[in-house]
Each structure stands twice: as C-alpha cells, then as structure tokens.
Amino acid sequence: MASYLLIESRDPFESRGFAQRSELATALAADGAAVTIFLLENAVLASRSAARVRELDKFAKAGVRVLADEFSLRERGIGSEQIAATVKAVPIGTLVEELVAGAKAIWN
C-alpha cells in the first residue's frame, strides 16, 4: 500500500493551501493509500478543537491520520486538553520514523 506523509508547517487560516492539500489527502485515502498529515510549526493551530477546522472531520471520516508536533504545540501554549480528539500529539522523532518507513513526503 502506498504511504503518503503530508507535512503542514503553515497557518491553516492564512491561505487556501491547507484546504487544497486536505482534498489531496482525502483523495489519496479514497484510492486506498495510507495517509498521514503531520502538523508542524504554525500548522498546529489547526489541531485546536476550538478552531473548528472542518478538514479534521473529513480526515477522520476518510481514515487520514493526523499527528501534531509536541514541541510546536508547546511553543504556542496549546495544551493537550485543547487538542481535537482526532489529533495525536507526538514527538518530532515520529516524523523521522515515518520517513524511514518509506512514506512519500511532501513539505508544505
């Protein structure tokens, strides 16, 4: 099974880019690929349940895994209780493990 790693580093609210790549992620998952979205830097703002980012629900329905960098969350004062239930906070090493496992990675 093809495996894709979409690394998001930018604020999801600053452009349509996040929404467009979200469509790509769900389309890849619909084609049978294993898809992971890794939120880094300002992209972790999307992980807050209060942000009500609609794409998170779409990811959950499509089977797209969403991970958020613990360090980026901490830098921005986002506590674990603020994160949406569908997002998992992980250390940066998890991204390394995904790369080693051979996921096709795109940095945005």
Binding site: S9, L40, E41, I92, G93, V96, E97, V100
Partner: peptide, 19 residues
Amino acid sequence: QSRTATAFRLIDAALRRGH
C-alpha cells in the same frame, strides 16, 4: 524561518535514532 530550526530538530532526531 522556523523551518531551519525544525530541520535541525529532525536531523537531530534521526541521528539520535542511529540513522
């Protein structure tokens, strides 16, 4: 950019895992 610090963190994590 923050990208540089993140890249250094990634490289650090890879090396610490023996890669």
